[in-house]
Amino acid sequence: MKIAIASGKGGTGKTTISTNLALSMASDHRVLLADMDVEEPDSALFIKGNHLEERIVTRDIPVWDSDRCTLCGECQEICNFNAVVRIASQIMIFPNLCHSCYACSELCRDEALPMKPSRIGVITRSEQGNLTFVEGRIDIGQEQAVPLIKSVGEYIESIADKDTVVIMDSPPGSSCPVMEVVGQSDFVILVTEPTPFGLNDLQIAVETVRKLGKPFGVIINRSTLGNSAVADYCRAERIRVIASIPNSLNIARIYSAGGLSCGMDPDMSREIGKVKAFIKLIS
């Protein structure tokens, strides 16, 4: 069972919920928590496990073979991403613009653009009891998150058995990287807040998840702040509200210092308990 924790906007409590849920479920279950917010992974601030593995992630980029090349320039014309440029005496390749589509390489009549692996980031794995923690982190200067997220997904496939509950902390928003994480999941939990911003962003997130045809539910964080518009929207749209975590300075303080509030805060413990029960129900 793979569960994506996502939200339309940042700062709604995605990471708080992923980390608390993962650690709490790990008390009696095998759990894998994956931080797939590869541009800004920060779950590691909350999980302290034994470091077990680090794996370099690459993707294939064409490399110019000047001996074979006849400078015909067709590669520049083929590339839809402006990643290949021919100037008078050479072909230049821009890995940041390249989408690894292979077109220039496979259509080159001189076989002068072989594809070679190029580093884009790193996956790390650590363990704390029943909990395996996997983090994808993109290298500074790399602009495309999707290939790395795909690799993290494949890595999870290779190490998690069927009984493991996989919790994936998704990036915020509704762009490609989010679609990639949600696409890999079996169920999506959308985290929101009961404010006009929270509602607006939840509606966009719901649109995204529906487009991918994934089953989903909602957690309302800081539920005692703001108004009832989010709850009303969920009722009207027949969306299940799995838990409502009340606003609490205590939870905010524990989070701010990099702590986990489940087990320390009664409200958080109770609501995370509801999420656990729900996951067991759908597994």
Partner: peptide, 12 residues
């Protein structure tokens, strides 16, 4: 993407 490389290849 790649407006910079596109324009610079025209300039080249």
């Amino acid at each position: 993407h790649g407006a910079g490389t596109k324009t610079s290849s025209v300039v080249a």
